[in-house]
């Protein structure tokens, strides 16, 4: 699927990106941190007429985004968010990137500073398959959402849904909404009292704001 397909409404977005896109209000100002190939930005631009910008660490990704008319710069979530003024965006999005940042706490804090809302999606290390991998086979888990062997993974700060919620509390970030993504791609709301959420969700998507 190409960005052109996404723009024309033909292709389907990755499941977690679709969940994120559904959280974004039309016509808003969006910063997508770690925007990769620009799929989410292209979708938001075409379907929700947002004023979208992207930051991407890979120069190849950036050049491809810009060549598709998206406003993207080369940059690093860990170091470059501090440049932006407070409340510059309606949403600051970080999809499947938190676990690869050096300082997730600071990144999330910066996100809720420069955006009125932040949206974070990440793979849940508490997912039952991940737990079983380690428990029974004694090997570092390699799953669909965590598709790297231990020696080549860029993921240095993996966490469970519960870990993430605890960190948000610690840095004074309020969770407005939590959505789980099951292995099937099925999305469901997170109930704070849900007993098995942290076992069953392969990924989590959180809508955050300053407390």
């Amino acid at each position: 699927m190409t960005l052109e397909d996404i723009k024309n409404g033909k292709g389907a977005l990755r499941a977690d990106l679709q969940v994120i896109a559904d959280l974004v209000a039309p016509g808003s100002r969006v910063l997508d941190v770690g925007c990769g190939d620009g799929a989410l930005l292209a979708y938001l631009d075409a379907q929700k007429r947002v004023d979208g910008r992207g930051v991407e660490i890979s120069q190849t990704g950036v050049n491809s985004c810009v060549a598709h008319g998206l406003s993207v710069i080369q940059g690093d979530a860990d170091t470059d968010l501090k440049d932006y003024p407070s409340d510059a965006f309606d949403y600051v999005i970080l999809s499947q990137t938190l676990q690869a940042t050096h300082n997730p706490k600071r990144v999330v804090s910066e996100m809720v500073r420069i955006g009125r809302r932040a949206i974070v999606s990440f793979p849940n290390f508490g997912f039952w398959r991940v737990r079983l991998n380690l428990l029974f086979w004694g090997r570092m888990p390699v799953t669909e959402a965590l598709g790297y062997t231990w020696y080549e993974t860029p993921n240095i700060h993996l966490c469970t849904l519960k870990d993430f919620v605890a960190m948000c509390r610690e840095v004074g970030v309020a969770i407005e909404k939590g959505i789980t993504l099951a292995h099937t791609g099925h999305a469901g709301d997170i109930h704070p009292a849900g007993l098995f959420t942290n076992w069953l969700a392969e990924q989590g998507v959180y809508l955050l704001k300053r407390d």
């Binding site: 406003s71 440049d83 510059a88």
Partner: peptide, 18 residues
């Protein structure tokens, strides 16, 4: 320059070409 433009939340693309 890009950092300066970010500081005013400008709409900016930045490409370094090999």
């Amino acid at each position: 320059l890009v950092h300066a433009l970010n500081a005013v939340a400008a709409n900016v693309s930045f490409v370094e070409i090999e």
